[in-house]
């Protein structure tokens, strides 16, 4: 139903996925109910919705960090049971290890046996250059700004060359200018490769700017209300944000949230 039609075989596939949590008081919270979603290989998908609608839960399910209550979660045709090397993840906060330098943080995957140290160092150096952090390799996270730290986190997630990049509101804590800048950088990183990106955000314009497909979720219980294909040309520029077409997508999505607010 909420399938993204693309003709390419679905790479990430959720079928009738429900996830409930038991709270400490013993109540059952349904974070996601009957969510079906097909994501083709190489797509940039943004998940958009109000706080508490299950965006992070959806991402954790795809990453194998938590288990579904019912339904199927498939990655590359295989059921997801635990995290695999195919996945890289960027969290809302950078989660850098303060005792490791930028380069050491970016090559964490090598210490955890995902790839050789030499290979990791080479790949990490390349990504560090791509995100504009050349010369900061030997600095410690405490010496970097929040935006720079988040860029290191992106490098770290990419170093073991995962085919899927999961990003949970990675730019939420940043100021508007840094955010714009990193959105453009992320787009070019993605365009240079063939990675599938699932990107959670609660900023409508960020969701439109980055997406091939925008998945709009609603809360209580978390569910998919619409999947919108964003047909803006690439590479997208910051000027496009002011175009009528861009504004059309934004106001269309905003309609959902306003309706929800009225209902609440």
């Amino acid at each position: 139903m909420n399938s993204i039609e693309n003709g390419v075989s679905d790479f990430i596939s959720l079928r009738h996925v429900t996830k409930s949590f038991e709270t400490m008081s013993g109540d059952i919270v349904t974070a996601l109910r009957d969510v079906s979603l097909q994501i083709p290989k190489g797509a940039f998908v943004t998940l958009l919705g109000p706080s508490g609608c299950g965006k992070s839960t959806l991402l954790r399910l795809i990453g194998g960090l938590i288990e579904k209550t019912s339904g199927d979660v498939l990655l590359g045709g295989k059921a997801v049971e635990k995290p695999t090397n195919q996945v890289g993840m960027v969290f809302q906060s950078p989660v850098l290890l303060p005792w490791r330098t930028v380069l050491e943080n970016a090559t964490l995957a090598a210490d955890l046996g995902k790839l050789s140290r030499a290979e990791a160092r080479e790949t990490a150096s390349r990504y560090i250059r791509l995100v504009g952090l050349e010369g900061f390799e030997r600095k410690y996270p405490g010496e970097l700004s929040g935006g720079m730290q988040q860029r290191v986190a992106i490098c770290r997630a990419l170093v073991h060359n995962p085919s899927v990049l999961l990003m949970d509101e990675p730019f939420a804590a940043l100021d508007a200018m840094t955010r714009d800048h990193l959105q453009v950088e992320l787009q070019s990183l993605w365009m240079a490769g063939d990675k599938t990106v699932v990107f959670v955000t609660h900023s409508i314009s960020e969701a439109v700017f980055l997406a091939d497909y925008m998945v709009v979720l609603a809360a209580r219980p978390g569910r998919v209300v619409e999947v919108i294909k964003v047909d803006l040309p690439r590479p997208r520029t910051l000027d496009m944000v002011n175009s009528a077409e861009f504004g059309g997508y934004v106001s269309h999505v905003r309609g959902y949230f306003e309706a929800e607010e009225r209902a609440a």
């Binding site: 995290p83 090397n85 993840m89 906060s93 210490d111 955890l112 046996g113 995902k114």
Partner: peptide, 20 residues
């Protein structure tokens, strides 16, 4: 989140102890 970071890499208990 640090714990989840190490989970994503399927880190062993020893690796988590040693590096985190």
């Amino acid at each position: 989140e640090q714990r989840e970071l190490f989970m994503i890499y399927n880190a062993t208990r020893w690796q988590r102890f040693r590096y985190l």
